[in-house]
Design a protein around this nucleic acid. Structure first.
Length: 264
DNA sequence: GTCCATGTTCTTTA
DNA sequence: CTAAAGAACATGGA
């Protein structure tokens, strides 16, 4: 569900909470917490939030005592800033009290969760940020895998923050077929791909991300970028660039949308 | 009932 | 041993 543009939009919407103190946290079920025995509610109580920022698809909270935790939204997670004592959604699992307002973490499928980091940001499972990566950096990382480009770009350790929508959109923009072996891309193609990823992500950010089913911003409003998708969700429809029919296949275990005529 | 879904991680296979 | 492919996770909507 939420990929980089959606997560960044939520982080932007949550900035009013930077500097606020968590008066109380209530965990409504324990299986969304990692590690399960970290005594989360007690450790965040009465802590001021110094900053809320995004790293990959993680929403990181920096606390005044030097500890960090992050929330990952999985496929269906939401963070909603609401007034105090707002009614709880059926799948709300964590509530932060900030006096006049509350922050609710809601996630029906529970692929997301809350991760206690203690005093270190753990970067070990994360590749470079897509908006910061250089063409050389991307080329070097793609050269080291035998997978197809679609699978490579979904790997958070190779590049961190892209998901199924923006990989398909970026590959279409760069005219690269998703089943192309990543290591066989020519430097010029990698350069175009690198630019395409950044252009697509920036445009999506300008439209508050894509709402396909579940995603909402931190203020509850949906994204609008889905109206500008060129391939995702458009299997069987004509390609906006060449008029050929777009197809949907399964690749890397995911629905994959592309134009056989102009992506090669 | 079936299949599918913006994600990650664990297990199995090569 | 490592890398890659597959299954699993849990819920809801078409």
């Amino acid at each position: 569900m939420p990929e980089l543009p959606e997560v960044q939009t939520i982080v932007n919407d949550l900035q009013p909470l930077a500097g606020a103190t968590i008066q109380r946290a209530a965990l409504l079920r324990n299986d969304i917490l990692t590690p399960a025995d970290c005594d989360f509610c007690r450790r965040v109580r009465q802590q001021r939030i110094l900053a809320i920022f995004r790293r990959a698809k993680r929403i990181v909270f920096a606390l005044e005592d030097g500890n960090y935790f992050y929330i990952h939204l999985g496929m269906t997670g939401r963070l909603s800033l609401c007034r105090a004592h707002a009614p709880l959604h059926k799948h709300t699992h964590l509530v932060f009290d900030f006096g006049p307002r509350q922050l609710h973490f809601t996630d029906p499928r529970r692929f997301g969760g809350v991760f206690w980091l203690a005093d270190q940001l753990d970067e070990s499972a994360l590749g470079p940020e897509p908006l910061l990566i250089t063409p050389r950096q991307l080329a070097q990382r793609l050269a080291g895998t035998r997978r197809c480009i679609k699978a490579a770009l979904l790997d958070q350790k190779l590049i961190a923050g892209l998901g199924n929508i923006y990989v398909d959109e970026s590959l279409h923009a760069a005219k690269i077929a998703p089943h192309t072996p990543a290591a066989l891309l020519r430097p010029q193609q990698v350069g175009l791909l690198c630019r395409s990823i950044k252009t697509i992500l920036r445009r999506a950010l300008n439209h508050r991300g894509s709402t396909f089913s579940d995603y909402r911003g931190g203020n509850g409003s949906p994204g609008e970028f889905q109206r500008f998708h060129r391939v995702y969700g458009r299997g069987g429809l004509p390609c906006h660039r060449c008029g050929g029919l777009l197809v949907k296949i399964t690749l890397a275990g995911r629905g994959t949308h592309y134009c056989p005529q102009c992506q090669s």
